[in-house]
């Protein structure tokens, strides 16, 4: 069972990399751009058939290692 995890900085946390990317895109002429936030993406493949069990396990992975919840939010979605 495969899951996709997206980790992004919380709304109030300054994202200097996102800012630079956003500024560069604007310089390239994309004037209607309002904001870019940069994040991380994990593809997690689990040997588990029970989808709710698997989902909980991925959530535990996020909370214990993949995400620093003081500064980051995460979203989990099942891909396969």
């Amino acid at each position: 069972m495969k899951f996709a995890v997206t980790v992004t900085l919380k709304k109030d946390v300054l994202d200097p990399q996102g800012k630079v990317v956003s500024q560069t895109l604007k310089n390239m002429g994309m004037n209607n751009l309002s904001q870019v936030r940069q994040g991380k993406f994990f593809e997690i493949d689990l040997k588990e058939k029970d989808s709710s069990k698997a989902h909980n396990q991925v959530k535990e992975m996020c909370e214990k290692l993949l995400v620093n919840q003081i500064i980051e939010d995460f979203k989990i979605s099942k891909t396969e």
Binding site: V13, L14, P16, Q17, V20, N68, I70, I71
Partner: peptide
Amino acid sequence: IECGLLKGALLRNSGL
């Protein structure tokens, strides 16, 4: 900070 003995976070330097 990552192990929880201290609170907060250390982000990338503001000047990148």
